[in-house]
């Protein structure tokens, strides 16, 4: 699977894996007003490297507020400008609910698992 693995020093990003046709990112903990800026910065750097697909694992995200959603919307728009794709997977019910409240489920590509996101 991974062509290369590296750990991030920023604890909101637990791991970044460079796969053959995607970059997979494991995000961990709350994505809120306090921690969103770190995620925003990390995602911007990753997208600047022009991945064809950025696959975000949200299985270990216990809480996300509108600043977290805004971070993902910004990342989506940034990668789309570069003709890339942002894919999300393994959302907990709590995280899923904010996408529903904000009516953003149709804007993002959301999958139940990493395998399904990578096959998409």
């Amino acid at each position: 699977m991974p062509a290369a693995e590296r750990s991030s020093s920023d604890d909101i990003v637990k791991q970044v894996r460079e796969l053959s046709e995607a970059v997979a990112v494991d995000i961990s903990g709350d994505v809120d007003l306090h921690r969103s800026p770190a995620l925003r910065e990390t995602l911007a750097k990753l997208i600047d490297a022009n991945p064809a697909r950025l696959v975000l694992n949200l299985s270990e995200v216990g809480y996300m507020d509108s600043s977290g959603v805004a971070t993902l919307v910004e990342a989506l728009q940034r990668i789309q400008r570069k003709q890339g794709r942002l894919l999300l997977h393994s959302l907990s019910p709590r995280v899923q609910s904010i996408f529903e409240i904000a009516r953003l489920e149709s804007i993002f590509e959301i999958y139940p698992s990493e395998d399904e996101a990578l096959r998409a």
Partner: peptide
């Protein structure tokens, strides 16, 4: 407006919705 897809501005909507 929720059709205006951009970062930010969701807090008021969430408060009113919930």
């Amino acid at each position: 407006e929720l059709t205006d897809i951009r970062p930010g501005g969701l807090g008021v909507h969430i408060r009113r919705k919930v």
